[in-house]
Design a protein around this nucleic acid. Structure first.
Length: 575
DNA sequence: AATTCGTCCTGC
DNA sequence: TCAGGCAGGACGAATT
């Protein structure tokens, strides 16, 4: 692959267990050359081609192909992830319904978690099937289907951007897992000891939990009741005269009884121990790094999911354990009110964009006359995006509708389409899944002559539920696209900074790229970059610059800005 | 004994 | 926290 025209794309595929083939394609997807490579040599070969030609790599799935490359200490700049892009194109309303990419195929199968051996990643419906999406012929065929689907659809520019952003997300997820979040187990242990007492031997109950449990039992007048069983606890509460329907915190908090305070305390401690206690620390933190498994595109809206480690639910209480290595800094950034800003951009609502200018969108809404106070503005915006119709939140929405008619029309239309069983799409073209056959069935039954009021009520509920789903889908999904664009641009900016801190102290662990400024954490609208202290200011500029780029990529010159809460610290603790 | 379901709590 | 979106994980209870 050294002679001839420059490859634009290089498709990697499996030949057999020990051999892969790389097919170089020109911009028109015409084959330029082929190379057979021993699987063991692949990472080095990819690195050399990356240096020479910086192609866009095409592969079935990032964990399968890129995982080993990262493990070998290399990176690539750009890829096209066939699995992730397939998931988008299959459902996208911007792709013609007769496009072959929408035909049922093994690409529809949900991937199984990548195992340590890099084994089966796709659940194939047919166990006898001899070809997998990882095979070169399957990859080439799917790549051509996807190119055609994008080019012939109604939104080629947007879909190309979405495919690139989603694929970059695939790379970033692999790199994030490899790098890990710098995690100080000592700080984590100190938090646990402070709350629970010393770590008990062999998974016993910590001292402070035991004493709190005793306070609960004595307030209940029942020395033996189990606090860990909802039904038993509920019965004990009733016997003690606390008439609650559930044992949830918010309901307990509404009652006055000596048992309430210690019980709430007990639940807090039990939660900390079971969700993020010493067992979690043992399982998920090694070598000073927390390595969650990220699942790009794992949520219907396009948000990432996580699997293992609970990266989506890191409690604030534990964020103090996120600590930069000695001589390093954390650059922590999150976007203030990302979703309403995205809504302003999508709807071209200049009134909402004006209110969003500056730091705090909610105060801006108050100044625009959209709400009486900041708290009301926040409630109203949440109600608008989640579909509240009653209560404090729903009551505030009509005023928003008058002040920001374009923005509100966008979400109201999305809700109406959803209620009618239709499909809605994000700004870049990710579409909502169609309603299930059961959904349509229930609705049909409610219109039959012998339908009962119960049928009609069920149907009404279903339509409203789906309206709220599609209403939120367009906003949450577009926010996820903005975040991907932000992340992808930031990643490239950080890669350009390699070598800018040659004197930096060696970082504790991780792949080679983690010796330079690198992404360490991502959650919906927040990123954490781990960086040598001398580079932290430049990294902060890169984070902010990437946010500007993302805004322009999605919304062009429309004047909506995305201000960041950005800080350079040793700890990711939130104020 | 193994699997699924429901409750509760965490995050955005 | 009552109304209103998207998630994951732990645990006990119910089901097989």
């Amino acid at each position: 692959m050294t002679d001839g025209a420059e490859p634009t794309w290089v498709v990697l595929g499996r030949v057999d267990d020990s051999t892969v083939v790389a097919v170089a394609l020109d911009a028109a997807a015409q084959e330029l050359s082929r190379a057979r490579i021993a699987r063991a040599d692949l990472a080095g070969w990819v690195e050399r081609e990356e240096e020479r030609h910086h192609p866009r790599w095409v592969w079935s799935d990032a964990p399968q192909w890129y995982g080993p490359i990262v493990a070998a200490g290399h990176r690539v700049a750009r890829c096209h992830d066939l699995r992730l892009v397939h998931g988008i194109l299959r459902d996208s309303a911007l792709v013609r319904s007769d496009a072959s990419v929408k035909d049922p195929s093994s690409w529809d199968a949900a991937p199984t978690a990548p195992d340590a051996d890099g084994g089966a990643l796709f659940e194939l419906g047919d166990a006898e099937s001899v070809t997998t999406p990882h095979d070169i012929d399957a990859a080439l065929a799917e790549f051509r289907r996807q190119r055609d689907a994008i080019a012939e659809g109604a939104g080629a520019t947007r879909l190309r951007l979405l495919a690139a952003a989603e694929s970059a997300g695939g790379l970033i997820a692999v790199e994030l897992q490899a790098a890990g979040v710098p995690w100080d187990a000592g700080v984590h242990d100190a938090i646990l000891r402070d709350a629970l007492g010393p770590r008990p031997l062999s998974g016993g109950v910590p001292a402070k939990m035991l004493s709190t449990a005793e306070r609960v039992r004595s307030a209940l007048g029942d020395p033996s009741v189990s606090l860990d069983s909802q039904p038993k606890l509920l019965r004990a509460l009733h016997r003690a005269g606390v008439q609650v329907a559930s044992t949830s915190r918010w309901e307990l908090a509404q009652h006055a009884h000596p048992v309430i305070e210690p019980l709430l305390e007990y639940k807090k401690l039990a939660r900390l121990l079971s969700a993020n206690g010493w067992a979690w620390l043992d399982d998920w933190v090694t070598g000073g790094r927390f390595r969650p498994v990220y699942v790009p595109g794992g949520v219907v809206t396009g948000r990432w999911a996580s699997s293992g480690g609970g990266a989506l639910q890191l409690p604030r209480q534990l964020r103090a354990a996120v600590r930069a290595d000695p001589g390093w800094k954390l650059v922590v950034a999150d976007v203030a009110q990302l979703e309403p800003r995205v809504l302003a951009g999508m709807s071209r609502d200049t009134g909402l964009a004006d209110a969003a200018r500056g730091r705090d969108l909610y105060s801006g809404i108050v100044d625009s006359g959209g709400a009486a106070s900041r708290d009301e503005a926040k409630l109203a915006i949440l109600g608008a995006m989640y579909g509240a119709t009653t209560g404090d939140s729903g009551r505030l929405v009509p005023r928003l509708r008058r002040i920001f008619p374009r923005a509100m029309a966008l979400v109201d239309d999305a809700a109406r389409v959803g209620e009618d069983g239709g499909i809605v799409s994000t700004w870049l073209g990710r579409s909502s899944p169609p309603p299930s056959p059961e959904w349509a069935e229930t609705l049909a039954r409610a219109t039959e002559a012998d339908a009962t009021p119960a049928h009609e009520l069920a149907a009404r509920r279903l339509t409203r539920d789906r309206g709220r789903f599609t209403r939120n889908f367009v906003v949450q999904g577009t926010a996820a696209e903005w975040a991907l664009a932000w992340l992808a641009d930031l990643r490239l900016r950080l890669a350009d900074m390699r070598g800018s801190a040659a004197d930096a102290p060696h970082s504790r662990s991780g792949p080679a790229f983690a010796q330079h400024p690198h992404l360490a954490f991502f959650l919906h609208d927040e990123v954490i970059v781990h960086a040598p202290a001398s580079t932290a200011d430049a990294v902060a500029d890169a984070v902010a610059g990437a946010a500007g780029t993302a805004g322009h990529l999605l919304f062009g010159d429309f004047p909506i800005d995305f201000p960041l809460d950005l800080r350079i610290t040793d700890s990711a603790e939130k104020s």
